[in-house]
């Protein structure tokens, strides 16, 4: 910006890029004709909304499952100060599982569909939540924990009222990472029976380049929206004292 006119011209996007972004935006708002559908139009706001709702649905289901599994384990192990190998090792190993292979593997056992996709995506969300819950609780000042114990708090109260509030920033970092991972990966769900925005991205023959780009833009926008929402939630959950302390 400060560079002025000359800076702008070097930053300006080449014409074809601008044209394809224009095409993608048109695709989002107005149904377009497609060469393979026999005259039926594709895209447009109605389909975008339907697929966006599906994308968010499967994302939240998977996130909920991941939280349900990983959070209690992470918090418990963090509080006990035990099972570091499990929390960190398993967490890291979990990140290496390829989603598509997992979906294909589970297709034979439980079939394709919402359950399969939810489990596969939850597996993706568990590692960051588990690891960050463990580390977040572990790094809480032991002095504060000892003081709480001295005041006669039960172990659960210590976790609930001292450790968890102090671990909020680390915990939330894990949850935010998991959410974005899950949201982005939910684009492969149409390969396993759940129509998400990935439908636009996978089916280039049906939706054309405009559809592919539109899908990518929509997923990126959703990721930003969720990221901001979770950042807001994190601010609400973080205790005043923690916000004041120099990070």
């Amino acid at each position: 910006m400060a560079a002025g006119g000359s800076g702008m011209s070097t930053l300006a996007l080449p014409q074809p890029v601008l044209a394809s972004i224009e095409g993608a935006i048109e695709f989002i708002f107005t149904p377009q004709s497609s060469s393979v559908t026999g005259g039926k139009k594709v895209g447009g706001l109605e389909q975008v909304i339907e697929l966006t709702v599906n994308q968010l649905e499967v994302t939240f289901l998977a996130l909920a499952l991941a939280l349900f599994v990983a959070l209690p384990i992470g918090l418990y192990l963090g509080h006990r100060g035990a099972g570091e190998l499990l929390a960190i090792g398993l967490g890291n190993a979990g990140r290496a599982i390829p989603e598509l292979a997992l979906i294909a593997f589970m297709a034979a056992a439980i079939g394709v569909g919402l359950l399969n996709v939810t489990i596969a995506l939850a597996v993706l969300g568990i590692p960051p939540i588990l690891t960050n819950a463990f580390v977040g609780i572990r790094q809480v000042d032991r002095g504060a924990v000892d003081a709480a114990r001295g005041m006669g708090m039960s172990e659960f109260e210590i976790l609930r009222r001292v450790e968890m509030p102090l671990a909020v920033p680390t915990l939330m970092t894990g949850i935010r990472g998991a959410t974005i991972n899950i949201l982005a990966t939910a684009t492969i769900a149409p390969l396993a029976g759940v129509l998400t925005l990935g439908d636009f991205i996978i089916n280039r023959n049906v939706y054309g380049d405009d559809g592919v780009l539109a899908g990518a833009i929509l997923v990126a926008l959703l990721a930003l929206v969720l990221e901001f929402a979770l950042a807001g939630l994190q601010r609400l959950l973080t205790s005043k004292g923690l916000k004041l302390s120099p990070a």
Binding site: A107, A108, G113, G193
Partner: peptide, 17 residues
């Protein structure tokens, strides 16, 4: 109609889905 990866076209018949 359920969309699936084309690699699963026999699997879904086999497992009765």
């Amino acid at each position: 109609f359920v969309p699936v990866d084309i690699g699963l076209r026999y699997t879904v018949l086999d497992n009765g889905q």
